[in-house]
Computed example of a mutant assay.
Amino acid sequence: MIPNPSHPVDPDLTPRARALFDALHRVSGEFTMLGHQDDTFSAHARERDGSGSPADSDVLAVAGAYPAVWGFDLGRIELGWSVNIDGVPFDDIRREMRRAYAMGAVVTASWHAVNPVTGGGYGENTAPGSVAAVLHGGDRHGEFLGWLRRVAAFLGSVTDEHGEPIPVVFRPYHEHTGDWFWWCVGSPLRPTDTGAGRYAELWRMTVGYLRDECGVHNVLYAYAPDRSRIDMATPASREHGYLFGYPGDGYIDVLGVDDYWDFGRGDPPATPRDRHADLADILTLVGRLAAEHGKLAAATEIGSPGAFAAESAEPWSGYLLSALTANDDARRMLWCLPWRNSADAVGTTAYGTPAPDSPYAADFRAFVRDGAIRLADTLPPLYSR
Rank of each mutant, 00 (worst) to 15 (best):
I2N: 14
P3N: 08
N4D: 15
S6M: 12
V9A: 00
V9C: 07
P15Y: 11
R16Q: 11
F21Y: 15
H25V: 06
R26Q: 08
T32E: 07
M33L: 09
G35N: 04
Q37R: 06
D39K: 09
A45K: 03
R46I: 03
G50M: 14
S51V: 05
S53Q: 09
S57N: 05
D58A: 09
D58N: 07
G64F: 02
A68L: 02
W70E: 05
D73A: 12
L74Y: 06
L74A: 14
G75C: 07
G75N: 05
N84M: 03
I85N: 08
I85R: 03
G87A: 14
E96S: 12
E96M: 08
M97Q: 08
R98L: 04
R98I: 13
A100H: 05
Y101L: 06
Y101N: 06
V106K: 00
V107I: 10
W111R: 04
H112M: 06
V114S: 04
N115A: 12
G121L: 07
S130D: 02
A133S: 15
V134Y: 10
V134D: 02
H136K: 09
H141W: 05
E143T: 03
R149E: 15
R150F: 11
A152T: 03
G156R: 11
S157V: 10
T159Y: 06
P165F: 08
V169P: 05
V169E: 03
F170H: 08
Y173G: 08
E175M: 04
S187V: 04
P188Y: 11
R190N: 10
P191F: 15
A196P: 00
G197D: 15
Y199E: 03
L202I: 06
L202R: 01
R204I: 07
R204T: 10
V207M: 13
G208H: 09
Y209G: 14
L220P: 07
Y221K: 05
A222E: 04
Y223V: 04
R227E: 07
R227Q: 14
R238A: 11
E239L: 14
E239G: 11
E239R: 15
E239D: 13
G241D: 11
P247Q: 10
G248R: 01
G248W: 03
V254D: 06
V257H: 02
D259A: 13
W261M: 11
R265H: 13
R265T: 12
P268R: 10
T271W: 12
P272R: 15
R273A: 15
A277D: 13
D278M: 13
D281K: 14
T284R: 09
L285N: 12
A290F: 01
A299Y: 15
I302R: 00
I302T: 13
I302L: 06
P305L: 12
P305T: 13
A313E: 13
P315E: 02
W316E: 09
G318Q: 10
S322C: 08
A323N: 09
A323T: 15
T325E: 14
N327H: 08
A330Y: 06
R331Q: 12
R331F: 13
L334M: 12
W335Q: 06
W339P: 05
R340T: 01
T349R: 05
Y360C: 09
Y360R: 00
A361Y: 02
R365Q: 12
F367E: 02
G371V: 00
I373T: 02
R374Q: 03
R374G: 06
D377C: 01
D377N: 07
D377T: 01
T378M: 04
P380C: 11
P380R: 03
L382I: 07
